[in-house]
Nucleic acid binder design. Structure first.
Lengths: 256, 256
DNA sequence: GCCAAATCAAGAGCAGTGCTCATCTATTGA
DNA sequence: TCAATAGATGAGCACTGCTCTTGATTTGGC
């Protein structure tokens, strides 16, 4: 018995983890609203009322799962980025995009939990905004570093298009201050567009809106990644055309 | 007593409509999983078991609401398109995009129902794919007509980018046959990108992922619409810069 | 080592849910 | 007119989240 405050605290931490693990298992096979506190306690062999000492309500459990999901996705994105050659910005963008899609496909219910419709009557607490920003930071970081090293193509607005309206430019400047230091307004706006495009496509695929429209989303997704990277001014990947892995099959293997 | 089969059938249709109306009301204030059949019957003053003669299960009611939502959104998109000058393709694209966002903002729970995470344990039946395709058809129709009338800018892939990979081109050709007759492969793929970008941005706004990132989404959304229209080769709107209406406020007013 | 205080486990219970079923009534078509 | 059918009803089942009381354990200060 090393730590005085150890025994009880450790068994509590263990049970908390077990509850979350079982919750994740049920989430994976029944979805968010199929998650039942009583079923969890039943699987763990404890009394149904006992779980409330660990998670004061169902929403609190859900929040914990959301935080974990954001963290899991954030880690995957960061690792994918870290695996790339630092100044190959096009490849980094593509790699992170593919990592996000891969994580979403191997954790569909957790993806739905964080990027689907907000759970009814549930308002995201402050705890989630920290972990939520990790993925976004990775994507923004690529654009920022490319900008800092002069690898970004600028002057993006084509001749036929009007320049950024005042409201848009103002928003871009505000955003540049907090997340895109030294990046041109046009680039900031296009980064937002690419960001929403990326998650829009993943969500459409995961939520079934590509069914009957696109037979194999992987190559389309890769092409979109390439074109959106170009759209924000990133250079093309050096290592040739990126690939989202196997064509049709993409079981539970994905990233951890 | 005019029609022999009339009285009973009409009162049944009326009650069915009343149930859906009450369901929509509850949906708007409690979300999809807050929808309770018993609460509906309570509000309608009928026995709780009576509702099952009109909707055999909760999922069937949900399906009916989904179909109605798709139809409502489809109508709004078609009307917005119809209001535009036929050969002003840039304006049509922008108008339909803004109509979609407007409908989503005034029917957030119904939008979440159809474009959010699929409700747990619920698989979309065939009934939904027809109405679901209406919005998509409007968007595709704009690109198609522009293509047919030679208003589409082609040769979109910039010098630095590789041409469409074989898999992507094949998918584009397949899609062109069913939805984009005579439209170049590059355009088809970019239309898919613009489509997912549009709904990606609306979903991010509706589901709170723009919170703390973008203060006023309307101008950004308009700019994205403009740039994505250009991305697929549509000409710029003739009527100047489009506007998504009032800056911040956007209450329940929207489209019906 | 003792003992009050805090923590935890357990079970009963409440109000709510979707859904089924037997029963009774009202409408229908022949 | 009358059997067949559709509709309305209330009881009941199994489930849910959550509360509260009761009793057993572990803790930290003395």
């Amino acid at each position: 018995m090393p730590a005085s405050t150890g025994l009880r605290a450790r068994v509590r931490a263990e049970l908390t983890a077990e509850i979350k693990d079982e919750a994740r298992r049920q989430l994976a096979e029944s979805g968010a609203s199929g998650l039942s506190l009583r079923a969890i306690t039943r699987a763990l062999g404890m009394a149904s009322s006992g779980i409330y000492r660990y998670f004061p309500s169902r929403d609190d459990l859900l929040t914990a799962l959301i935080v974990d999901a954001y963290d899991s996705l954030g880690t995957v994105a960061e690792e994918a980025d870290a695996r790339c050659t630092r100044d190959d910005f096009g490849s980094r963008w593509a790699a992170v995009g593919r990592a996000i899609r891969g994580w979403a496909r191997s954790h569909p219910q957790e993806y739905a939990l964080v990027y689907g419709s907000p759970v009814p009557g549930y308002r995201a607490p402050q705890d989630t905004i920290g972990p939520a920003s990790r993925v976004t930071s990775v994507l923004a970081g690529i654009v920022n570093e490319a900008s800092r090293e002069g690898a970004l193509r600028v002057g993006l607005t084509p001749p036929g298009l009007p320049p950024l309206p005042a409201h848009v430019a103002a928003e871009a400047r505000r955003l540049a201050e907090v997340a895109f230091p030294g990046t041109p307004d046009e680039t900031v706006i296009r980064a937002i567009e690419a960001w929403t495009q990326l998650f829009g496509m993943v969500s459409f695929e995961l939520f079934g809106h590509l069914e009957g429209v696109i037979t194999d989303p992987a190559p389309i997704f890769d092409r979109a990644l390439l074109e959106m990277g170009t759209h924000v001014g990133l250079p093309a990947p050096r290592t040739g055309t990126p690939s989202s892995g196997p064509a049709i099959p993409f079981p539970e293997s994905g990233v951890g």
